[in-house]
């Protein structure tokens, strides 16, 4: 029988946690005024960006691909993944930080939009990605032909910033898709997360490879050494993953990742064999040759086709995602090849 008397008042807890994870990556060192403001906020400063001396003109004039802006964005986004040791989890939705993040995103997006060709012809973009240029330059081509072990280790250390959270940015787009496109994306994600086996998770395979190479496999361990060109690639995924209106661009980024990964992974396996690396080291890229040959088909026929049939207006965003992520991948590759040409281990 239902009681007719009012229940006693319940104490309402404070909304939002006060403390962040005890363990987790340490905060990086700032690389300029933008990242300094973000990092001060993460350390507990309650000053607004303008009170901290950051003018909107300074933000607009910042180098969109520079170390400072990209690190500032990366730290903002990391709150949505695993946070930082000792940083309040509540800052994930801090209005001041979100406002600054939006301003930084607009600078980054405007630069990308200005630099890519644009268009709406998804099929032609995909056809271009499906042609293998055998004498292409690029990190995996270089490593396959003449790369040295320290170069391979450096590449893996940098790439760990993404691969230790591999597939996570794309999980954000799941609720934003429907029907067959959603099913195909989840099929890919299930494979990325090990098809029900923790040991087969791609992030775990990457950690195992790092250990085999004597690298630190802790999440975020190489953030301080990672160049802006690498952070920009990951930031683009987080940006498109966190904004529903950029879902088409995230799918475009996924197209590039899945269509270029299989041959590139094959070249890295060849590089590792040439350098005498063991099977535990090789397994991550060997797995990606087969997995991404499947994912290529699922992306093209399972996601792109039904997505564009249901939402044809997204074609321009998919093309933008393809072109922008190609541009960012090339920038990172060019940077490493330039550095390696000078033969200076970092």
């Amino acid at each position: 029988m239902l009681s007719t008397t009012a229940p006693p008042p319940v104490a309402v807890p404070d909304i939002g946690p006060d403390t962040g994870p005890v363990t987790g990556p340490a905060l990086p060192a700032p690389r300029g005024p933008l990242s300094l403001v973000v990092l001060d906020t993460l350390r507990g400063s309650t000053r607004t960006p303008s009170a901290a001396g950051l003018t909107s003109a300074a933000i607009e004039q910042a180098d969109p691909y520079g170390e400072d802006l990209q690190l500032a964005l990366y730290c903002c986004y990391e709150l949505h993944y695993r946070g930082f040791a000792g940083v309040s989890d509540g800052l994930e939705w801090d209005p001041g930080l979100l406002g600054l993040r939006r301003d930084l995103e607009q600078v980054f997006l405007a630069a990308l939009r200005a630099e890519v060709r644009g268009g709406t012809d998804v099929a032609t973009e995909i056809d271009t990605l499906l042609v293998e240029v055998v004498d292409a330059s690029g990190v995996s081509h270089h490593l396959r032909r003449t790369g040295q072990l320290w170069q391979l280790r450096e590449y893996i250390a940098y790439r760990s910033l993404y691969h230790l959270k591999e597939a996570d940015p794309h999980a954000w787009v799941i609720p934003r898709l429907t029907g067959p496109a959603k099913v195909a994306l989840v099929t890919i994600e299930y494979d990325e997360y090990g098809s029900g086996s923790v040991g087969r998770m791609h992030a775990q395979l990457f950690a195992d490879m790092m250990t085999e190479f004597g690298l630190c496999a802790e999440y975020g361990a190489y953030l301080d050494t990672a160049p802006a060109a690498l952070l920009a690639e990951i930031n683009f995924m987080s940006l498109c993953g966190l904004h529903r209106w950029l879902r088409g661009a995230l799918i475009g980024q996924l197209v590039v990742a899945e269509l270029t990964s299989s041959p590139s992974s094959d070249r890295l396996v060849q590089a590792m064999r040439r350098l005498g690396c063991g099977p535990a080291a090789i397994e991550f890229y060997a797995e990606h040759i087969e997995a991404d040959a499947v994912h290529e088909q699922l992306v093209r026929h399972g996601i792109i086709a039904p997505l564009l049939a249901a939402e044809p207006a997204l074609a321009g965003d998919v093309v933008f995602g393809i072109q922008a992520s190609t541009l960012l991948a090339d920038r990172f590759s060019d940077l490493l090849l330039r550095r390696w040409a000078e033969e200076q281990p970092t």
């Binding site: 042609v131 293998e132 055998v134 040759i289 040959a293």
Partner: peptide, 13 residues
């Protein structure tokens, strides 16, 4: 018997 994308068209730069 697994695909490794070797069926793709190959060209020189």
């Amino acid at each position: 018997p697994f695909c490794d994308t070797s069926h793709r068209r190959r060209v020189r730069n």
